[in-house]
Design a protein around this nucleic acid. Sequence first.
DNA 1: CAATTGCTGATTGGATCCAATTATGGCACA
DNA 2: TGTGCCATAATTGGATCCAATCAGCAATTG
Lengths: 236, 236
Amino acid sequence: MQMKPDLAALVAAGGGRHRTATQHVEAALRDAILSGRLPGGTPLRQEELAQAFGVSRMPVREALRQLEAQALLDFVPHKGAVVTEISAADAADLYAIRMALEPACLERSIPHLQPEDLAAAAELLEEMDLNADPGRMGELNRRFHLVLYSRAGQPKLLALTENALSSFDRYLRFHLAAHGRAHLSQEEHRDMLEAARAGDIPRATRVLRRHLDTAAATIAAFFAARGTGAEPGGNS
Amino acid sequence: MQMKPDLAALVAAGGGRHRTATQHVEAALRDAILSGRLPGGTPLRQEELAQAFGVSRMPVREALRQLEAQALLDFVPHKGAVVTEISAADAADLYAIRMALEPACLERSIPHLQPEDLAAAAELLEEMDLNADPGRMGELNRRFHLVLYSRAGQPKLLALTENALSSFDRYLRFHLAAHGRAHLSQEEHRDMLEAARAGDIPRATRVLRRHLDTAAATIAAFFAARGTGAEPGGNS
DNA sequence: CAATTGCTGATTGGATCCAATTATGGCACA
DNA sequence: TGTGCCATAATTGGATCCAATCAGCAATTG
């Protein structure tokens, strides 16, 4: 009966692949939050995390501040950082951002898309068909979208979009739980890819908007069915 | 002949109005960067800033990291943080973001705008007519836009928009230098306010898009006329 | 004379220690 | 028995100190 197996687990998730300890802690915590292993409302105490990661409290502090800037944590003075709660309102907020940013990315990127981009996108779609692991699904979905946007040539716009997509990962499990998780709007994904291949910007953005609309509706329905703060699955 | 009068000046700009030293340093530095007092390319050494602010290097470090996350600084290992350079490409990037986010904010906010919001917006426009101080102009312009968006009811979307508007302040001085700075698109501002008052969402967003288009064109022309890295005015 | 290599200085990342603030529990008293 | 106050303890913010890494320069050698 370990009280905190999550900490030991998420330390390993960071891997040793980061240059500084701060980056290591930040990556591990972000991944844990976005994947749902650290659910909303979880309090994070610096000392505890420092021991778990085998570092001092300082890199933990800096990592927490970075995550706070990304709206993944709320800082409460003298009570520690807590993982931000997910909610229908927050999901709608994220969707509004995605709806604003992603069509802009797509329409700027499509004219400059290269064959290798389309091939990479198609490969990601195939992988999504085969791979049903919810955790990996979020990454695949995010990468698929980002590949299509990658030639927009506006780094800040892309960075914002990537951040919004990452934040959305927290809600993807809802989506997967609602649908049979077998096909996560793969129809629309294929439509988008086809439109992009054809260079048909109006059609591509139209499909993208519908894709986002249906996803938003799915999440909203999920929250409406349950209480506003319910988690879809266990943390097993 | 003080080598670094800027540091002493920007310390005072922070004021004593922040809870933690980190917030104080962050606010002062951000204001200095956005206002142009710290131009692009300026190296910021932690020890130097710490002395200037009368604090240790730690809050300076955290503040710099926060500013890096906001894309105002670039971190170069063992060479210090440098203020990000402004460029035509960066300006275009920012405008793409504004063009994506602000119409979304406006159309969601207009239906819920209150009379006091419209009054506040009108007051800001008047103040912009009277006040010609470039530094204050940026704040007024930002607040005018934000008031019109304030009822969008999507905190993350608004936060992103506010950040984009703040970042744009760095380019506002170009705009002011190009036009006579007497009327910073006040025509379009008034049009927007009128459309918002009438609840005419299509017209308001149309005006807003044109407003952003013309502003983008102005900045682009300014960069085209000069070299890509020129600063408009002195730092007096 | 130029290129390379070793050294020194500077700068950042991390650890440990201290201070300030507040949540929380117990205890006394009405 | 319930309520309010106080003391303790836990937690964060900040300061100082140490280690590691890299830039720049000079001396040396081909």
